[in-house]
Design a protein around this nucleic acid. Structure first.
Length: 536
DNA sequence: TCCCTGACTTAGCATCCCTCCT
DNA sequence: AGGAGGGATGCTAAGTCAGGGA
């Protein structure tokens, strides 16, 4: 399957012939406008779609909204995102429910009663006791500092050492509660489910330009301890409760303005139709704005997604020229041009991210292409029988380690030597370059071209090439699935998509081994495939 | 040009929930 | 029925990129 035939692939997915693996397809997934459903429902629906019989009458409450086939409509390119927008506002986190009296917190071996605010924050820590986070110094220090801020003077005077705090009864309490929830009767579970569905019915949808569309995240993030990834300097800090007074509502003037919860006011109600968000608030850890936005299957998101792939297709048409240009630029007399050319080569060849600058000490120390430092690569004139090898070793987005050795053209190698000359390990490799310069240049090469388009393009191309290579028209469904998973895996490797080894890994591996042994001994004629790139 | 910020996408982890097997 | 397995979904952190102001 070549790139130009990708629309067929999209259609196949829309028709739900293939299931996409979320892990490996972010760069290549489609904006499938048909909402995803559970496997069982899919099978049922597929039957309905392919059957000649009229669809069976749906039970009450099961009627589906007719799908708005926005992707078949004419699109206009404007920064106006909507003409009408009405919604009920976000759902706030439930109020804190104090612990029952028999669940105690101990300080220095003695039970200690906490005021509700202090207790609430203690429960955030208590329920994370089993997690690796609570073994980290940074997490604990940050937690203690923020916890003390909510304590009364009396509590503050007493609770000074986290090591003397015992939260185990709190953890046990929540474990017990979750166990109880699991053991509820079918009817009780149904009742809870129904209640949740009612909330979704009210708050989970909005009316936008005569269409009802699903909201992606209508629930405001509950208070908790900040779980920054990797070596995050702010991990363990208290993420505060968000109140209506913190929330800005965005909707159209002529809509029914959402009611704030009783006794509360919104921070602001605005009517800005140049943006897609319905509500926003500022989070207290990094000061970043959080948004309530539409679901991925909505027109607003889907159209944007579609455009992304169109841009990638446009790149396909001129990528040869761009590659020739940057190879030529490796010889440039201007240092910036050389650096830009080598950086672009990495972005293209290795699917690296752009690499914006980050404020030191505010986040984990991670880098992308433009922010690579001398310490992140090693140059080997010869390695494993290959010449001019570059070894990369750095932490990328989400502190996922990127480790890769690649042979490069001699000219690239010599350039890298030049860029690294007389520099300290912590110095920038591309000291003349940043993402802004790079993207401005890319914009000159092609309208809408930015660094991330290369990732989308190369991921999509890899997937389609792999599918072409691995599949055979006569293959059965199982074989097609296997090929599809393998193709996806190739994309995961290219994009360095990784996931932690699941906690139950060893157990399930053992079970799998047993099955394999059994199958081998019985001489079964089939193989088992798995597609995930797990971290070592 | 630099810096900051707002808006939006990308992506890993947690949890839910369905299916299949015992 | 109960539990394991694993995909789907939910949640939210962490990126990208553009635009505006100094």
């Amino acid at each position: 399957m070549r790139l130009k035939s990708l629309p067929f692939f999209l259609r196949a997915i829309k028709a739900k012939k293939l299931k996409l693996d979320k892990k490996t397809t972010t760069e290549v997934k489609t904006s499938s406008p048909v909402k995803t459903e559970s496997k069982a429902k899919k099978t049922k629906k597929e039957k309905e779609e392919t059957s000649d019989e009229p669809p069976k009458k749906k039970k009450k409450g099961e009627e589906e909204q007719e799908v708005w086939r926005w992707w078949e409509e004419q699109r206009e390119d404007t920064n106006i995102k909507w003409d009408f927008l009405e919604h009920k506002g976000p759902v706030f986190a439930p109020k804190y429910e104090p612990l029952p009296k028999n669940v105690r917190f101990y300080y220095d071996g003695k039970p200690m009663e906490l005021t509700p605010d202090t207790e609430e924050v203690a429960t955030f820590y208590g329920r994370m006791l089993d997690h690796d986070y609570t073994t980290r110094d940074v997490f604990n220090t940050n937690f203690m500092k923020d916890w003390r801020k909510v304590m009364t003077d009396e509590e503050k005077a007493k609770i000074t050492d986290l090591k003397k705090c015992n939260f185990t009864e709190i953890l046990d309490h929540f474990k017990k509660k979750s166990e109880e929830r699991k053991n509820l009767s079918k009817e009780e579970k149904q009742a809870i489910k129904k209640e949740n569905e009612e909330i979704v019915q009210i708050y989970g949808y909005c009316k936008i330009d005569k269409h009802v569309e699903k909201i992606g995240n209508f629930k405001i993030e509950p208070p908790s301890l900040f779980r920054g990834r990797g070596d995050h300097p702010k991990q363990g800090m208290l993420k505060k409760r968000v109140n209506p007074e913190d929330v800005i509502i965005n909707c159209s003037k002529d809509s029914k303005i959402p009611e704030p919860p009783a006794g509360h006011k919104w921070k602001e109600v605005r009517h800005d139709n140049t943006v897609t968000w319905l509500a926003s608030w500022t989070e207290n850890i990094q000061g970043a704005t959080k948004y309530v936005m539409l679901n991925a299957a909505s027109k607003l998101k889907g159209e944007k997604d579609m455009k992304k792939y169109e841009t990638a297709r446009a790149l396909h048409k001129c990528v040869d020229k761009i590659r020739a240009t940057y190879q030529e630029d490796w010889k440039s007399k201007v240092m910036l041009v050389r650096q830009r050319a080598v950086a672009l080569y990495f972005i293209d060849k290795l699917a690296l991210r752009a690499g914006n600058e980050k404020e030191e000490g505010e986040t984990a120390d991670t880098v992308g292409c433009c922010s690579l430092r001398v310490e992140h690569l090693k140059l080997r004139e010869e390695k494993g029988g290959k010449n001019y090898v570059v070894e990369f070793d750095f932490l990328g987005k989400d502190s996922i380690r990127y480790q890769n050795s690649i042979p490069v053209e001699k000219r690239v190698f010599k350039n890298l030597q030049l860029f690294m000359e007389n520099k300290q390990p912590e110095d920038d490799l591309f000291d003349r370059l940043n993402t802004s310069i790079l993207n401005k240049y890319l914009q000159e090469l092609m309208e809408g071209l930015t660094a991330k388009v290369f990732r989308t393009y190369n991921a999509s191309k890899t997937l389609s090439e792999q599918l072409e290579l691995l599949t055979n028209g006569e293959d059965g469904v199982a074989a097609k699935m296997l090929s599809y998973n393998r193709a996806n895996r190739a994309v995961a490797i290219l994009c360095n998509h990784q996931r932690a080894v699941p906690k139950t890994f060893e157990k399930s591996m053992e079970n799998l081994q047993n099955k394999v042994s059994f199958i081998r001994s019985a001489n079964f004629p089939f193989s088992v495939g798995k597609n995930s790139v797990e971290r070592p």
